[in-house]
Design a protein around this nucleic acid. Structure first.
Lengths: 344, 344
DNA sequence: GATTTACGGAAAATCGTTTTACAGCGGTGG
DNA sequence: CCACCGCTGTAAAACGATTTTCCGTAAATC
């Protein structure tokens, strides 16, 4: 009944060779006579043999595992990055172990330590803060790792991120071109470097026109974002356009505007961040700054794979461009320069 | 410089005991003299010792790993279940390995086999089809597993799912109470048992009133859902209410109605499935059938944990109730019986 | 006080794979 | 004709923890 899974010995016996030969055939590290190899493969197939990862790991000291640590598994941006990595790895014999730091540096460190005990071949971290104090831990483990999303430049590690300044800039430019002068930037949390960079991108474009944007810090989650924006709208003269710098912030803005029955884009234009199906499934589809999630995943894996295979070139800092998806939530204010009208 | 991590021997040597004793102290399977134990613990601490999971796994044959296989890592329902499981496991010394079958039975089998090679302590599968042909593979591995979401009753395994009939019924009941008689059920794919059950729940409630619902199969993804619904609306007299049975279907319905400028709920009422922030961040917040994601994750882990610890009771089939979140997207049609009005 | 039991700890076997060191063998060049 | 080389494949060591077996001492029983 309970037959334990076939071991390399069973395969060897059935093929009439030694375990070492089986390993060589299946691992492909040493040449083996073609006929013999075929016999081995046939035996392995018929026994349903799969190498025990534990034993393999113990011997080689390197697990065919990629550890991925993200700040939040309920944020679709992070899960979509995980998904993109997963599809990149799929056929390469690696598994993904995943954990969430829940936005806390302490759990970030503890989860990272726990995952490190598996001696993964590589590590991907989307840090929950710019400091990323857990870095030293991973550094001393001498494991290839990639920092993504949050830290654009690290002295000792490869990084993959988005060109955040440009992301802010393309949003700002679109609004300027449509005649907006009174713009509110809805940032989530200014402690984060990527958010600050997005702000700076906006500010730089506006400065060229001698303008400055108002700015509000909405906090991380959707409810407080909505509440804070509501309060802000009570206290200030409303802008003609809002630029949200985060997917949750986008939701917060939408909720606040809906609550106050402010029409988009008739009263206020809106640019959202990230690009999800729900942004399109609306009476007024959202203009959005779209992060290239798939490419981010691929870039992470490309870099990690190179390091795993021994690349020792200096740390690379990959920056990918966001693109603006122009839809109906941004309207043109001044008819003069409106050869491109936002509302289609 | 590159000091390899401390092994159990190093700890043993420093504490002046045998490796076996170290194992007993740290693993706590055999009693050890208190003073000795403290010395061992102190040695372990000062060396920063963490047991090599590989060696441990090889010897015990059981990894402190939970494998989770879902149909799609880009669907927020599945990722939220993964997230719920992850938070349940966090402090129990387990890691999660996760993979997506991408809705294909073939990759489901291959990913499952690959993950099985790690000899995880437990397995969680959200099958991509009712057949779930990969089941035999996991069955013969003799590893505790839980099937979730798709298969409500399996002869040999624990299952965790939602009471899908009830989910459909509460939606239908709400519409009936609000005077709707001409209801369109937007199902994703009728091959799936859970979707069929939701349909049956709706049908049962309507049958009590001598009614029957129209039904449309929208397909899995948002774009085709939208297109098919558009076509359906061309060919049929529009219903007064639509009940979407899936989160992507909800998006498809919204897109189709938006495209045709059909007002919600003035022209058509809508009940969505699952409950996400974007459903609330609208001018007309969506009435929705909410699945208890957190509870699903907890139930999965509770069952799996029990099995891992040796529970041999007959397979349990846990069903959790969905709840209806009444918001503004469902309007009351007949003023007569409208003590509960949908629009608040 | 003698014998049995209990118990704490050490030595050694074990898990299944990879890798190193080496043996056998045929071919080639000196 | 011999020495050497390259090529295949095997035997055996190694990886690091857990677990079984075993031994010596202390406690318990009569």
């Amino acid at each position: 009944m309970t037959t334990k899974p076939a071991s390399i010995r069973d395969v060897a016996e059935r093929a009439g060779v030694s375990p070492a030969t089986v390993s060589n055939v299946l691992g492909g590290r040493k040449p083996v006579n073609a006929a013999l190899a075929e016999r081995v493969r046939e035996a392995a197939r018929s026994l349903g043999y799969e190498a025990d990862r534990a034993a393999s790991l113990l011997r080689t000291g390197k697990a065919r595992i990629i550890a991925v640590l993200v700040p939040d598994l309920d944020n679709p941006f992070f899960t979509s990055v995980v998904s993109a990595i997963e599809t990149s790895l799929r056929d390469q014999g690696y598994e993904i172990i995943v954990a969430s730091s829940n936005g806390s540096e302490a759990t970030e460190l503890s989860r990272l330590s726990a995952m490190l005990a598996w001696r993964p071949a590589g590590f991907v971290v989307l840090p929950c803060s710019d400091d990323f104090p857990a870095r030293s831990r991973i550094e001393q483990a001498k494991i290839p790792y990639v920092i993504a999303d949050r830290i654009t430049r690290a002295p000792t590690a490869d990084t993959v991120s988005v060109d955040n300044e440009d992301a802010g800039a393309i949003g700002a430019r679109h609004l300027i071109e449509n005649g907006h002068r009174n713009i509110l930037v809805a940032a989530s949390v200014l402690d984060l470097g990527n958010i600050r960079e997005r702000c700076e991108g906006v500010a730089a474009v506006l400065a060229q026109q001698g303008l400055a944007a108002s700015r509000i810090e909405t906090g991380g989650d959707f409810e407080t974002a909505s509440a804070r924006l509501s309060r802000w709208l009570d206290d200030n003269t409303p802008p003609t356009a809002i630029l949200a710098l985060t997917n949750f912030t986008t939701l917060g803005v939408l909720a606040a505007l809906a609550e106050r029955q402010i029409a988009i884009p008739q009263s206020i234009s809106l640019i959202g961040f990230d690009d999800y199906a729900w942004m399109r499934a609306r009476a007024t589809p959202l203009t959005a700054i779209s992060q290239p999630v798939q490419e981010i995943g691929e870039a992470i894996w490309a870099r990690l794979k190179a390091r795993i295979e021994g690349d020792t070139s200096p740390p690379a800092h990959i920056q990918l461009k966001c693109t603006l998806k122009v839809r109906a939530s941004t309207a043109s204010l001044s008819p003069t320069d409106s050869f491109s009208t936002g509302a289609v």
